[in-house]
Computed example of a mutant assay.
Amino acid sequence: MSEVMLRLSGLKKTYKKGQTGEVTVLDGADLELARGEMVALVAPSGAGKSTLLHIAGLLDTPDAGTVEIGGVDMTGLSDRRRTVARRQDVGFIYQFHHLLPEFTACENVVLPQLADGVPRGEALTRACDLLARVGVGERADHRPSAMSGGEQQRVAFCRALANEPRLLLADEPTGNLDPATSDQVFDTLVELVRGTGLSALIATHNLELAARMDRVVRLDQGRVVPG
């Protein structure tokens, strides 16, 4: 039986709307993600994909329900312990790369490792290895502004994997790119995930990309259902 890397149970999340109204985004959402599994999460804009990912990645807390990563219930942890778990166990990729503009590609991949206590020499070696693996090794000394959109997103992939997380969460990771570049960058992401044995939950509007993953789920009225 495959080990469950991510288990979301009964997640509920409601936001205030205006002075008196409320909108329920998640209403008892359940999801299990096995070790090494790639799952696509599809839903229209505003259906709650980002909310689900933020809760799964410990960036937000649910109103009810639990989040388990690697069998550990993260829901009731202190902010400090959640921060440590997020830094060590979870890699997050956004639609926009969010690289630090004043640092080079290599430095952007080194910094999260230094924050986790990795010696600088070891961090540099891992950063160079990751950048080479995704085909931007020769751009290691370039700042994001001197790189193409596809190159920037590849560096963002490396940054997300810098601390060797067990779980990768991606929110429309190729949504900011043109179709041809999107396909190339997505190929790179799949190779990275498969090569490292990561579990990955990837939100995407692109049904062709979604079909290349192990399975597809979607959000329907606040719940996760088969795609």
Rank of each mutant, 00 (worst) to 15 (best):
M1V: 11
V4C: 09
L8S: 01
S9E: 13
S9Y: 11
G10M: 02
L11S: 00
T14L: 05
Y15Q: 01
G21P: 06
E22R: 15
E22T: 13
E22V: 10
T24F: 06
T24I: 15
V25T: 06
A29V: 12
L33N: 07
A34I: 14
R35A: 15
E37Q: 11
E37L: 05
A40I: 05
L41Y: 00
V42Y: 05
G46P: 02
G48R: 00
K49D: 00
S50P: 04
S50F: 03
T51Q: 02
T51H: 03
L53C: 04
I55R: 01
I55L: 03
D60Y: 01
P62T: 07
G65C: 05
T66C: 01
E68D: 09
I69E: 04
G70Y: 02
G71N: 09
V72L: 11
M74N: 06
G76T: 15
L77V: 06
R80M: 11
T83Y: 11
A85T: 00
V90I: 12
F92N: 07
F92M: 12
I93G: 12
Y94T: 12
Q95R: 14
F96E: 06
H97F: 15
H98K: 06
H98P: 00
P101W: 07
E102Q: 15
E102R: 15
E102M: 15
T104C: 00
C106R: 14
E107K: 13
N108E: 12
V110D: 08
L111S: 09
P112H: 10
L114M: 09
L114W: 09
D116E: 14
R120Q: 12
L124S: 08
A127P: 03
A127Y: 06
A127C: 08
C128M: 15
C128S: 12
D129G: 12
L131M: 14
E138S: 14
E138K: 15
R139F: 14
D141E: 14
R143N: 04
A146H: 14
A146C: 13
S148Q: 02
S148Y: 04
G150D: 09
Q153E: 09
Q153A: 08
Q153C: 08
Q153Y: 13
R154C: 10
V155M: 10
A156I: 11
N163D: 07
E164V: 13
R166P: 06
L167F: 08
L167A: 04
L168V: 05
L169C: 07
A170C: 07
A170K: 03
D171W: 13
D171R: 05
L177A: 03
D178F: 03
T181E: 00
S182C: 04
D183E: 11
Q184T: 14
V185Q: 00
F186D: 02
D187V: 02
E191G: 07
V193Q: 04
G195A: 05
G195S: 04
A200I: 05
I202E: 09
I202M: 07
A203N: 07
H205F: 10
E208M: 10
V217N: 01
V217Q: 00
D220H: 13
D220Y: 09
Q221T: 15
G222V: 00
R223H: 08
V225R: 08
P226G: 14
G227V: 06
G227D: 04
